[in-house]
Computed example of a mutant assay.
Amino acid sequence: MTAAALIADIGGTNTRLALAHGRELDVASIKRFRNADFANFEAVVAAYLPQVGTPAIDGACVAAAGPVVDGVAELTNIDWTLDIPTITRAAGTSHVALLNDLQAPGHAIGHIAPEGLVPVIPAAQPAAPEATALVVNVGTGFNAVPVHATPAGRFVPPSESGHVNLPIRTEADLRLSHYVDDSHGFPAVEEVLSGRGLENVYHWHCAETGAAPELRGSDIIAAAEGGTSPQAVAAVQTFLRFLGTVSGNLALEHLPFGGVFLVGGVAVGLERLLGTGAFAEGFRDKGRFAGFMGDFSVTLVRDDRAPLIGCANHLHELHTA
């Protein structure tokens, strides 16, 4: 078997491993492992490689759920040490890279098959090939990163965009801000725009109307789609408007003429509702810059392999630089 790159996407609960040849991800090689079943990352790799024929490994790139500082990942919900020496030992190669789990999809932009992309808002003009893009993650948490093309290769800087203050436009927004502030100590964007954030918004709408909160997680989205709960419908519309507002704010900060790309489980779960108007209204609600917002397209990334695709592309770029 020819040499391959080892690609990993480490979440709080599961780790996905795959092989790649150059930029090409070997889709058939993707396997998922429960983190709780293994003492460390090296043990996961040791279990994985025999399942794919024990290939020679000539490089490795890992995306980790948590901030990466000076080559060390602070993993969320798992007591593993993950750094460059650990990856080197596990993969048996010195050609390694470590990204956080949002930088990885940034490196996938432009390399995802069209069937994995869902247009949400078109741009007034086609994007230039090397234009800056913006990746916005809505899942267990919220974060966003710009994606820059540079002469030295693609640059995707880390960020903690979910922990800035929630933007306030109306009296109702202020009441919601006070609600999540009272419940969680700080009215951060992530307290509204995340999995738990959707539940927070739903509970707030229930409190506003005197209804008993009976739904959780994806059930809120399902009830909003079916129109079976006025509170769920209102919660999803509020969520989408805030998502549009925050994404639009970030677009003005980073000028992503290459497009805004929504990733993450909550964003994908809202696919059928993203086009209902609230998201686009929030995105374009920028006063005299409302027209300028038409220069930014918005696309939903439906392909959950984006972190793996991004790792493969980042590693290939490092090897060919």
Rank of each mutant, 00 (worst) to 15 (best):
V27H: 11
A172E: 12
L300C: 12
R284Y: 12
D37W: 07
C311P: 02
P256R: 08
H316Y: 09
V266C: 11
P151V: 04
T13D: 01
S94Q: 11
P158E: 11
E208N: 05
R216W: 02
P151Y: 06
A64L: 00
G139D: 05
E130N: 14
G106L: 09
G116R: 06
A46R: 14
P67G: 07
L117Q: 13
I7V: 13
V263E: 05
I30H: 05
G282M: 10
L102Q: 01
T209K: 14
G258V: 12
M1E: 04
H95T: 00
E281H: 14
A91H: 05
A28N: 10
S29N: 01
F186K: 10
A152G: 03
V260E: 10
A207W: 04
V145G: 01
T13K: 00
V298K: 06
E115G: 07
A211H: 11
G11P: 00
T170H: 09
V118C: 14
V260C: 14
V136P: 05
P50S: 03
T299W: 07
A43G: 03
V201D: 04
H107W: 15
A127D: 07
T15G: 01
L75Y: 02
I78E: 00
I30P: 01
V233N: 04
P187L: 11
L250H: 03
S177K: 13
H314G: 01
I87D: 08
A3V: 00
D70E: 15
A18D: 10
T276V: 13
L19E: 05
G287E: 15
A123H: 06
L252F: 13
Y48I: 01
E253A: 14
F239A: 08
F289Q: 06
A234W: 11
E160H: 01
I309V: 14
A3F: 00
P105W: 07
I121W: 00
V301N: 06
I121K: 08
V260S: 07
L250G: 05
N200D: 04
D9P: 02
S297F: 12
G275Y: 09
I57S: 03
A224N: 15
R305F: 00
D182F: 02
G106R: 07
H21I: 01
L198F: 07
A222D: 14
R284A: 09
V180F: 02
D26I: 15
S229C: 13
Q103G: 12
A131F: 09
G92W: 03
A188T: 03
N14T: 14
E199W: 11
V68T: 02
A65E: 02
A234L: 09
G259R: 10
S218N: 15
L17E: 11
P114T: 06
